[in-house]
Structures are given as structure tokens and as C-alpha cells.
Design a protein around this nucleic acid. Structure first.
Length: 264
DNA sequence: ATGTCAACCCGAGGTTGA
């Protein structure tokens, strides 16, 4: 099966902040939303703990790149999953932050970009190098005229309107110019942020809310998770949304799923 | 509310990372 021949494909990305802790919520959400392809981040588990059988029962093939306590990324697909990619480059592979697979004829990558911690921290430099190597990987191995999606937790708010109060982020990561340029260079390769394209000036499209200080209820969040797709796919994107409901209730992740619905 | 959560150390609560 190919996206091109599908009547509809629902694509999603979700940082679940521990798949172990989130499995009941993830299962419930899959049964309710019935997405076709899902990128997961922060599974925080080793490969041998990944519940592939449970996903199989729900109709999904899966690929997982885990390391145990931290990070961990996965792709679920019920439109086929082949040619998994685990090896990218030295910087990209130091932690379990990117995995790829061909799903329904589309190259899909689930990414969990390094947080960076602080502007003067070594982890911030690692984050910028990580972005640079991702761009290099795309240049060397992928074709911007093909059907390709990179989705995940980018840990960067591309615009001031992607955080609840830009003044509160002065001097912090996620909004700095080098980080934003790094995201732009990924987009410049040939990818479109379809949610932002659909709602150019809409505020409050947040995908992440800190657990602390009642941020979710005060609607004080950040838009750091997004679906980037090549133009051939982006022109087939008919709906883009953040599922705020998944951030509510008992034991939620601190991130909400971001969905894009593709239709011919 | 200095306001949370999760995994790991282990067998309570501190540490790490987000």
C-alpha cells in the first residue's frame, strides 16, 4: 500500500514521556484515533522491553530504537513498515534519538532532538551539531522531491508565537536564534511545517506544557513538536491539529500528539 | 504553591533529566 493510493492517511507524532508509564493512555488513544502512522519519542525503554506484540494486536507494525532509561524513539504503522533505518551518523547515533522506516511508500523519521539544557551548556552545542548532522544526512541520503516525513519533538519553538510568553524565555534554550536557524535549515532542505502553514498567525497551538505550575490549565505551553513533510506530501495535507484532549486527565504525558491528515 | 513526573539507585528518598 502506498500513501499515493490511499484514500486517507492519518499521521501523528507524540512524545509520550515513558512508554511504560503511558502505555494505557497510548493504547486508549490509538483505539480512539486510529492513526495510520505514529512517531513516538521518549519511550525511555530498552528494545527488549518494547511492547511490539501489544501494538501488533492493535494492527501496528513497529520499529523501535531504545537505550533504556533515557530517550528512545519508535514508529508504528498499519500501512506497512519496511527498510528500518537505525544508523545515521556518529553525532546522531550517540543516543537513541532518531529512527526511520518506509511506511506506505513514504520515508518516515521519528526524531527526538536534544534538549540543550542551557545556552552555555555543552549539551547546547551537541544540539546544534545534531541538527547540522541531520541536515547532512538528508543531503547525502534523501531526496526532497520524494514523499518523506520527519516528525517528532524538535525542542525548538520556531517563532515567538510558539511560546506562551517570549519574555519568559529570554536567555533560555528552545527560542535562541541558532536553534531557530537550525530548524530553518532542516526546512530549507525541502520540508514544510503544515500546521503552521495552515494557521500562520494562530497563537496557542502548543504541543507541550510543563507539568509544573498548572501550565496546561493556564494554556502556558510551547509548540516544539511538529510534522515536517516534503512538498509533494504537504500539498495533500488536509487537516493539521494538536490533540489537547490527550494532555488532559489521569497520568498524561507533558506533550500532546500532533496530527496531520493526508488525502489524495 | 519553592507548585511535576519518571526511572534509577534500591527497598526510603535522593539523584538525574526534562
Amino acid at each position: 500500500m502506498n500513501f499515493r493510493y490511499c484514500i486517507q492517511v492519518l499521521f501523528a507524532t507524540w512524545n509520550v514521556n515513558s512508554l511504560n508509564a503511558r502505555l494505557p493512555r497510548v493504547t486508549e488513544w490509538l483505539e480512539m484515533c486510529e492513526p495510520d502512522v505514529v512517531c513516538l519519542q521518549e519511550t525511555k525503554m530498552a528494545d527488549d522491553a518494547f511492547p511490539a506484540l501489544g501494538f501488533k494486536e492493535l494492527g501496528y507494525e513497529a520499529v523501535h530504537k531504545g537505550e533504556g532509561r533515557w530517550n528512545g524513539v519508535a514508529i508504528l504503522s498499519r500501512v506497512g513498515l519496511e527498510k528500518p533505518v537505525f544508523d545515521f551518523s556518529p553525532e546522531l547515533d550517540t543516543q537513541a534519538r532518531i529512527v526511520g522506516a518506509k511506511c506506505g511508500g513514504v520515508d518516515v523519521f521519528s526524531v527526538y532532538v536534544p534538549n540543550g539544557r542551557a545556552l552555555d551548556d555543552d549539551h547546547y552545542q551537541f544540539k546544534l551539531r545534531w541538527f547540522a548532522e541531520l541536515r547532512q544526512y538528508l543531503d547525502s541520503n534523501c531526496d526532497p522531491s520524494s514523499d518523506l516525513i520527519i516528525a517528532g519533538d524538535w525542542n525548538v519553538a520556531p517563532e515567538d508565537g510558539d511560546v506562551w510568553d517570549i519574555g519568559a524565555f529570554e536567555g533560555f534554550t528552545h527560542v535562541s536564534e541558532p536553534e531557530r536557524k537550525a530548524v530553518q535549515s532542516i526546512k530549507d532542505w525541502g520540508l514544510m511545517d503544515t500546521l503552521r502553514a495552515r494557521f500562520p498567525r494562530q497563537e496557542g497551538l502548543f504541543s507541550y506544557y510543563d507539568y509544573q505550575a498548572g501550565r496546561f490549565h493556564k494554556r502556558q505551553g510551547m509548540r516544539i513538536d511538529y510534522v515536517l513533510s516534503t512538498h509533494s506530501l504537504a500539498e495533500r495535507a488536509k487537516v493539521d491539529l494538536v490533540d489537547r484532549n490527550a494532555r488532559k486527565g489521569t497520568k498524561p504525558s507533558d506533550h500532546a500528539p500532533v496530527l496531520t491528515y493526508f488525502e489524495d
